[in-house]
Design a protein around this nucleic acid. Structure first.
Lengths: 246, 246
DNA sequence: TGCCCCCATCTCGTATACAATCTCCTTGAC
DNA sequence: GTCAAGGAGATTGTATACGAGATGGGGGCA
């Protein structure tokens, strides 16, 4: 009688790992067609191409991509897990409203997580991490001098990645990356303001100084300001674009 | 030509919401069989019934529950999104290793989020929220007096829920709930230590006092201690159970 | 004329079937 | 004897088919 529904390893071989795929993640982002569809739909949602409240018709999406409903369903489920769409039991999936208030909330949480990572990094960073952080900072400086927003955006990601890696808390790093990814489109938008890049760079310098000095409290405070200011600037931007807010 | 793959709302009806199911979430936890299967598998994973590294055979799980592979796949995908299992492109899903180090990391992040919620709640809570928080605290006191760990566990959830709701940041609340849910099994385990309940209750009182006084900094500090202590106690518990750590 | 009930229709959720890919064992050559 | 190539088996990923439940409109009744 096989009451266990999975391939259970016999006891004598238990101590040796049965073959857990550890320390190897070749394609965590997308697997097969469903991952590709998920990325495209996600892009369309965050760019506003699909307005809030719109229903994602499985059949329509399937025929658009030339696939069946199965991979589309998987993609939509992933979007629901990410909080981008809302599923109603027998009604379908709807693009979730991501209003200004939601964005401010998300930036608020992002600021807290980033600040936490900075605080921990100031205490735990090693020589290698220090070098990575410094290199990322210099890349940001170079991009700022060239006045290249796209390059700055990329190097800015490297900068924050370096902090995540140095914080010594892998779970925190993954959570921060998740939020970072979700806010990507909005952050990129507000980087178009030239003064913002200069200000951002100055904040980066202060953050690196605090971490290099091992001052966790200061790094925390600087990072919190660094992120919150983005949320505020974005709020300004949205307010200027849409004078009428429902 | 229908280049849009979804039912796009005509422009003249755009200003009015097309029928976004807002402010209504009847069954967000589980829909259909897949949700039920997900809950059971999740329970088995967090309780350790399925050891880390074990492969979740779709076919085996399906035949065990008397369903087809389709809902099983959806359940496994949800577990992967929750971080409980790891999917390898053409290999299958494996129970992710949740070692002591990972738990400590998660408690560390949980502490930060809870502390943030407390800090915000101290500033933003209203009379209604205050009443809820006070009621939850009294329920905890009652459970502690009766020395009823299960009741205390439930009322403890109510207590933290009250703080989440009062923090005025819905995104933070949902993130905190997610982590809370994930750490549920481990928190419940360490509540079995009688002294822990008394200590937890004392911490709850200090937290409520800080929030009632509108002292965000103190609420933050108290909550951070309240959660971190759980991580430490759990580490002690695990260390006492397993003297040998791989 | 207005309200309620019933049914046609649609969509989702699940079942089943097929194709692509991987693993592992076997077999053959060097 | 060892290593590599090939094929059988198994497993995942996708396609198609079918039933359950909900939605909306039309007809009947008060």
């Amino acid at each position: 009688m096989d009451n266990s529904a999975t391939t259970r390893i016999p006891d004598d071989t238990a101590p040796t790992a049965p073959e857990p795929p550890a320390a190897r993640r070749p394609a965590p982002a997308s697997r097969g067609k469903s991952g590709e569809i998920r990325d495209i739909l996600e892009q369309e949602i965050v760019t506003g191409e699909r307005p809030a409240g719109e229903r994602l018709d499985e059949q329509a999406v399937a025929s658009r991509f030339g696939v069946s409903r199965t991979p589309v369903r998987e993609a939509i489920n992933q979007l629901a897990s990410a909080g981008l769409v809302e599923q109603i039991p027998n009604r379908g999936a709807f693009v979730r409203e991501t209003g200004l208030a939601d964005l401010v909330e998300m930036f608020e949480v992002m600021a807290e997580l980033e600040a936490m990572a900075g605080r921990l990094a100031a205490r735990r960073i090693d020589a290698k991490g220090r070098a990575r952080l410094q290199a990322a900072l210099e890349a940001c400086e170079s991009a700022a001098e060239r006045n290249a927003p796209d390059a700055y955006y990329y190097d800015n990601e490297r900068f924050h990645e370096a902090i995540y890696d140095a914080c010594g808390n892998g779970f925190l790093a993954s959570e921060a990356r998740r939020l970072h990814q979700r806010l990507k489109a909005f952050r990129r938008l507000q980087l178009r303001v030239p003064q913002r890049i200069r200000q951002s760079l100055a904040e980066h310098r202060r953050i690196v100084a605090a971490i290099a000095a091992g001052d966790g409290e200061r790094a925390e405070a600087e990072l919190k300001v660094h992120i919150m200011v983005q949320g505020e600037r974005f709020a300004d931007l949205v307010a200027s674009l849409k004078p009428r807010e429902g």
